[in-house]
Amino acid sequence: MAEITLDQIIQPENLVYTKSRIMTDTVLHYCPGCGHGTAHRLLAEVIEELDLQADTIGVAPVGCSVLMYNYMDVDMQEAAHGRAPALATAIKRLMPEKFVFTYQGDGDLAAIGTAETIHACNRGENITILFINNGIYGMTGGQMAPTTLPDMKASTCPYGRDVRMMGNPLKITDIVATLPGSYYVTRQSVHTPGNVRKAKKAIRKAVEYQKRNQGTCFVEIVSNCNSGWKMTPADANQWLEENMLPFYPLGDLKVPEE
């Protein structure tokens, strides 16, 4: 048997994975190893697989993913800090046949935008919310987030988050799951290939369920911030598994009754 060469393998008919065409060719501005890129790509893949490009209207937040609209080849609006669910509410109500999503970080969704998050979910807006929780403010340089863990260091809690002085981390996804307006609530991560596969399945559900008009679909993705955490990407993912996941356990918090 003749050994097959690389040139023979690398042929268009043998392609099993490449970047989704919904992702643009613009180089992501995220730090090396940042989970934002992975989360973007999963959403893009789902939009491509479900053939939703012409029906999609996305809302970008303020934070690291503020420039998300440069990376996805869909119509997008850039919201003021925390207000993405309000924009999405109006978009979906005015154009109910469209697929409408917001993509928000922890500062955007769980601090400045808490009211918009809770009320959009409580009204049961038929939108899909992707919530990236990396426990820190990345864009502004590593300050404490509403989701920063107890004793975790950040630039505005350099000796660690003292919960007696700085308050407790907010498990907003758990709150969202208790609201009658939420339909599907899940917490995922993208720090290992297995978790990426699971996260994609969850995002796909959260997109498909929007068609049912039964309420808000909410996917938290526990992610890393290796720059903010001051670790290598691989160490950050290890730290995430050992520290973030015990506090923010993965899995479905609310699933539709079939």
């Binding site: 209207i57 809302v59 609006q77 919201a79 003021a80 207000r83 309000a86 924009l87 999405a88 509410t89 109006a90 978009i91 109500r93 005015l94 154009m95 009211a115 918009e116 009320h119």
Partner: peptide
């Protein structure tokens, strides 16, 4: 026409933003 009582003026004006960005008369 869609009429919605928002949770705050902050949400209301941002709903206006979202609707206006779709080219709607809001």
């Amino acid at each position: 026409m869609v009429v919605l009582q928002a949770e705050s003026e902050l949400a209301a004006i941002n709903m206006v933003y979202g609707g206006a960005a779709c080219g709607k008369k809001v």
